[in-house]
């Protein structure tokens, strides 16, 4: 299933699963960039806020010599039938037609969490607690991203703050507003092994235009028709099949993430 409905001037992220070492630098860089607060003492892996979340997936008995892999899971920025957009009762989620980025307006969100139920990738996070930083640490917040408050949903937006800054600087240099600008989300910048690549297929930054067509490229749950803008790469067949549910998964599989 390689139906690419993504306009080449819209952003895509390509994550090389074979290069991910599960170090978590992307998760930390993302939280710092987007002013996500440290965990409340009672938070768990099911109540935390991790726009980027790396999970470890075991092959069960299918692995071809590779027993497990790490999959970083940001919002998949679905291009078609974006599940969270249609369900929101008050238009707090919108898709930017130019960039393709699915944007959550936390200021308008009432926290009904219907979008979270709708998202098959579990990429959305609810603020179960008020965000709290240790005393003084709020001075180190990124001025380009507004902090959210308790009771609203938030998620990865391909570092929208960085996009805005890049767009502003491109405008200063006289670039037309319809041209895609080059920028890089925090996770891609932080990745020690350069497993995360980002850009538009049209400009082919970091080779993303070629990578999305490579034979090892795949996307999560393609049959749902959501056309994610996040692609993964792996040379391991079991990883590709598992992600696309092409084969019945064995029950010996477990996950930590």
């Amino acid at each position: 299933m390689k139906s690419i409905e993504i306009s080449p001037s819209q952003y895509v992220m390509v994550i090389d699963a074979d290069r991910c070492t599960g170090c978590g630098a992307c998760m930390v860089a993302c939280a710092i960039e987007n002013n996500v607060a440290p965990a409340h003492p009672d938070a768990t892996d099911r109540t935390g806020v991790t726009w980027m979340k790396v999970v470890k997936v075991s092959s069960g008995n299918n692995g071809d010599g590779k027993p497990a892999c790490y999959l970083p899971l940001p919002c998949q920025q679905c291009a078609a039938e974006t599940p969270c957009v249609t369900v929101c009762p008050q238009n707090a989620v919108e898709v930017d037609q130019q960039t393709g980025i699915v944007f959550q307006m936390s200021q308008r969100c009432l926290g009904c969490r219907y979008c979270m139920a709708a998202c098959p990738y579990h990429a959305r996070y609810f603020n179960w607690w008020d965000p709290e930083w240790p005393e003084g640490m709020e001075q180190t917040l990124n001025p380009d991203v507004a902090p959210r408050m308790r009771g609203v949903v938030e998620k990865c937006n391909f570092c929208h703050g960085r996009y805005q800054a890049a767009r502003a600087s491109a405008a200063e240099h006289g670039q037309a507003s319809s041209d895609p600008v080059t920028y890089e989300p925090a996770c891609a910048q932080a990745c020690p092994t350069r497993a995360i690549k980002f850009g538009t297929p049209a400009n082919n930054e970091q080779g993303v235009g070629d990578l999305v067509h490579s034979s090892s490229a795949f996307r999560l749950l393609p049959r749902l028709g959501t056309e994610p803008r996040v692609y993964y790469l792996s040379k391991h067949k079991w990883i590709r099949q598992m992600a696309q549910m092409e084969k019945e998964t064995s029950t010996g599989e477990e996950v930590h993430g």
Binding site: T86, A92, C112
Partner: peptide, 18 residues
């Protein structure tokens, strides 16, 4: 809902598809 004070937003910015 997480922000009951915003419940009226549904009437203000309704999404007809939802």
């Amino acid at each position: 809902v997480g922000q009951p004070l915003r419940a009226w937003f549904t009437f203000w910015h309704p999404n007809a598809h939802s």
